[in-house]
């Protein structure tokens, strides 16, 4: 029953002008697993995540979920993806941003409900119940009526996790979810992510929190210069790799 190749990415390439940011990325991820992507800034981690979410369109390669190809570079090089098609593809993935990007003019409940409501995913009452249960899950049920500016960074990030979950994405992506947070607020966000793992949510996390990556991930990828340099279980990557660059990266004071 366990699907080891729930998410499959192969040969993913992305160029910005002459700059090759992704030079052929291959990996796969099982259903309900957590993949952490680590690496220095500029290594292509965030671009990889943005390609998965179709905020950038990869130049080449393939993305498949549960055996269904949702992106095939060879097809899309010829003609552009239509807007409606793009929106459907995006819904396979959810994305939690580094700086939350909550909608400031809406309160917590409205932030979580906006997209499902506009996409007509159910009756207002159903959507509200669902939104409330998600907000409860991230521990903010008493903040329903608050506006983002009235919340701490950690609380805002938890709301944005609830907002991403509201559309039932197959895979939830996090782009350095705790980089904009003070250490004491980081903990509460990481706790929510751990809890999500219990519910079988498949996640891809770009992170600088090495302890966290080691403790919760099923797989870890170390990226360097647009390529996956080391891949494996947390033990393999953190304890048993003899990759020089990875050692340098892990021992650098920056993390």
């Amino acid at each position: 029953m366990e699907n080891k190749n729930y998410l499959q990415v192969s040969g993913l390439c992305k160029k910005f002008g002459n700059l090759e940011v992704l030079k052929g990325i291959d990996f796969s991820l099982g259903k309900g697993e957590i993949l952490s992507i680590i690496g220095a800034s500029g290594s292509g981690k965030t671009t990889l995540l943005r390609c998965l979410n179709f905020l950038e369109i990869a130049d080449d390669g393939e993305i498949a979920i549960d055996g269904e190809t949702i992106f095939d570079g060879s097809l899309y090089r010829a003609h552009k993806i239509k807007d409606t098609e793009l929106r459907e593809k995006r819904l396979h993935f959810g994305l939690v941003f580094q700086n939350f990007n909550l909608f400031p003019q809406y309160n917590v409940l409205q932030n979580v409900m906006l997209a499902p409501k506009l996409l007509k995913k159910g009756s207002t009452q159903e959507l509200e119940e669902k939104a409330k249960s998600l907000i409860n899950r991230v521990g903010l049920i008493d903040k329903l009526d608050n506006y983002p500016c009235q919340l701490s960074g950690g609380q805002q990030q938890r709301v944005s996790i609830a907002r991403a979950l509201a559309l039932d994405p197959d895979i939830l992506c996090f782009d350095e979810p705790t980089s904009a947070l003070d250490p004491e607020l980081t903990v509460e966000v990481l706790r929510v992510i751990k809890d999500l793992k219990q519910t079988g949510c498949t996640m891809v996390i770009v992170t600088h929190e090495m302890e966290f990556a080691r403790n919760v991930s099923d797989r870890v990828i170390y990226m360097r210069d647009g390529l996956i340099e080391v891949e494996g279980t947390p033990e393999e990557v953190f304890d048993h790799s003899d990759n020089e660059h990875l050692h340098k990266f892990l021992n650098s004071g920056s993390i």
């Binding site: 905020l55 929106r87 996409l119 991403a164």
Partner: peptide, 8 residues
């Protein structure tokens, strides 16, 4: 981008 990833 937040709107885009939410499929709007």
């Amino acid at each position: 981008e937040a709107g885009q990833v939410l499929g709007l």
